[in-house]
Amino acid sequence: MRATGRGAPAQSATADREIVISRVINAPRELVFEVFTEVRHRSRWWGPDGFTTTTRAFEFRVGAEWDFVMHGPDGTDYSEWITWTEIAPPERIALRHGESRGDPNAFESVLTFAPDGAATRIEMRTVFPTTELRDEAVEKYHAIEGGQQTLSNLAAYVTEIARTRVED
């Protein structure tokens, strides 16, 4: 797993506004992409440890939206909204993520799914509108740890699905 945070060497024009998290998942890319993109799987793994997710609306196509609520372990609800800006199965997804449609603080993420032997390397590159918003996400909302936990939850769920499919 790799994550860049404050103090990481600048690698791009947006380095001071971005977070990059990656993980290798021991499953084929097509399965990882499926589990990431199908709503029937989402509530089983989405979010940091201790969070649950309730989907209000979901359609996976460019221009469509995922409207959902993340429920924190302390009982706090977080309204969330994602729109898909690019979909290239099973290689890449780009999205815009905020609290709601029109959120001026929404951020952009690009997820890539690359073969890594028999496994898949997923990379989540998120760029915030400003350095201050990025720093707030890291410091106040623990975005790096939360992203790592979310990918860990995805990996555990995909491994469970892969095992079940082999047994069937």
Rank of each mutant, 00 (worst) to 15 (best):
H71M: 15
R134Q: 04
A119E: 04
T14A: 15
R61F: 07
E86I: 05
V166C: 08
E139H: 12
P9M: 13
T55P: 09
D168M: 06
W66C: 00
H142P: 12
I87P: 05
T126P: 06
T54F: 05
T54H: 05
I144T: 03
F36S: 04
N26P: 07
F58L: 12
A13Q: 15
T54I: 07
E108M: 09
G5F: 00
F51E: 00
P89Y: 07
R163H: 10
G47Y: 00
G50Y: 02
P115N: 07
T4A: 11
F51A: 00
T52A: 08
T112N: 08
R165M: 08
V158I: 12
L151P: 02
A114T: 13
W84Q: 10
S43N: 11
I144R: 03
F51P: 01
R125L: 13
V35H: 03
T53P: 06
Y78A: 04
T14D: 15
V35K: 02
E65Y: 03
S43K: 09
T85M: 01
T120V: 12
D168I: 07
F51Q: 08
D168E: 10
E80I: 11
D168P: 03
T120Y: 11
A57E: 15
G102Q: 14
L133K: 15
E123D: 12
A118F: 09
D116M: 11
T83L: 01
R163F: 10
P89G: 03
M70Y: 00
D67K: 14
E91I: 06
E139V: 10
R163C: 10
R134L: 12
S109I: 02
E65G: 13
T131W: 09
A114C: 09
I161F: 08
